[in-house]
Design a binder for these strands. Structure first.
Ligand code: MN
Ligand code: MN
Ligand code: MN
Ligand code: MN
Lengths: 220, 220
DNA sequence: TTCGTAATTTAGTCTTGTCTAAAAAATAAT
DNA sequence: ATTATTTTTTAGACAAGACTAAATTACGAA
């Protein structure tokens, strides 16, 4: 557990992120795109991370986190999400403002501090975007969730998360007064463009585009 | 106000610190000693900081913060001390544990966050060691304070700060149950070694060495 | 005033993390 | 099976920040 640089931490975190949707090995280009760096630089860094046994790396064949690397990366995600909760719950930031700050705060060293922060926040299990917060051993609560787009006419559900966390998307949701916890029924699906019409618990009716519906997680 | 690296920030902060006790220009060696770096490296960095108009620097003749540099450095101190308050008040750390964490947290960018943190903490004016917290314009409350060592027999006072913030010193004070706010009367001063005998408000009597008394700030 | 020491700067390297351009390997297309 | 294309790695450079050793400058003591 010798301590890593911020740069190394960011590589691990993006490899973890890419691993989540992509079960096979991660390519150099994918990482390069994710953290906005040239593929050549990524190639260099992968060698270093492999030397430190944080990733399994075979030239030309992509990369995978080792158990140690995964542990480290999950701890970063834990820190990131707990800080996001702090920023929204305690400092009254909105959910579209917290990511960049958490991106910095996640690199502050001190596991004891994070455990205390977790307790101070009341042991939250999800961050402001509905993403699960790993515990201090890296375990993550799995929730039964699906994308709004997958629902059929007549189904009832509640919004529990967002897939896209871009500020513009979050601000759009704010503007139409949709947030985590909003309950609704699907009252129509347009065949032509797959827009969905929802009836919210408060009585309002709303039409959402396919793109929006593909970026909202719900639970029934 | 282009943003500075952590390294540059640390230089500014130590120059400010040295300026407080030393009203003349600050020498290269002093800075080198303060941040544990070779004088040669300091010399290099001073050139860069001067180029950025953060310090006034004349080769071989020492250095002084410009108004901009001072503003920047004071903002760092502000951040450092507010985070220290957060760590003690909200996360229940003791006063000897917070410095190193604050040393990292002070470098997180985001003045809005700091202003919100300040409000969340109830606009504290002093940190856990009794040091004043600059406001968001860099203004610092000045308190009438003196060192315990300067008191005479018979004088009453209250402890409001510590000059040395080393963990060992703070832990020693904890061990003899002395903290900020402790009230006492000087009931004797030993001529031989300048130890002082105090009678605390709770009735306990205590003998403190000259070195200890030289590192405690009091107010009458 | 001159000399010797201490403080400071310069010169030359090193490491980390980045880049562009070029080479090499893997994969897709014919 | 060959070729063309894409992906990945290597080569060579650069900036930031650090170091050690050597050269300068300042300054206190004789
Ligand atoms: Mn990061
Ligand atoms: Mn989040
Ligand atoms: Mn610092
Ligand atoms: Mn302090």
């Amino acid at each position: 557990m010798g301590h890593l640089s911020i740069t190394e931490e960011n590589y691990l975190k993006s490899i973890l992120k890419l691993s989540e949707h992509n079960h096979t090995k991660i390519g150099t280009n994918e990482i390069a795109y994710e953290i906005n760096i040239s593929a050549a630089s990524v190639s260099d860094m992968l060698k270093k991370l492999a030397d430190k046994k944080l990733i399994i790396y075979q030239k030309y064949y992509g990369v995978k986190l080792t158990k140690t690397g995964e542990q480290y990366a999950k701890n970063l995600v834990r820190k990131h999400r707990l800080w996001e909760v702090f920023l929204t719950q305690k400092l009254q930031f909105s959910w579209d403002e917290v990511h960049d700050l958490a991106e910095q705060l996640e690199h502050v060293k001190g596991d004891d501090m994070i455990n205390r922060l977790e307790k101070f926040l009341g042991n939250p299990k999800f961050d402001p975007h509905g993403d699960p917060i790993p515990d201090n051993k890296g375990n993550i609560v799995v929730r039964k969730q699906q994308l709004l787009i997958e629902l059929k006419k007549g189904e009832k559900a509640v919004i529990i998360g967002v897939k896209d966390t871009a500020a513009t998307f979050l601000q759009f949701l704010d503007s139409i007064k949709i947030s985590l916890g909003t309950k609704f029924t699907v009252i129509g699906v347009v065949i032509y463009d797959h827009s969905m019409q929802l009836k919210l618990q408060d009585g309002r009716e709303l039409m959402l585009s396919q793109q929006v519906c593909s970026n909202i997680y719900v639970s029934s």
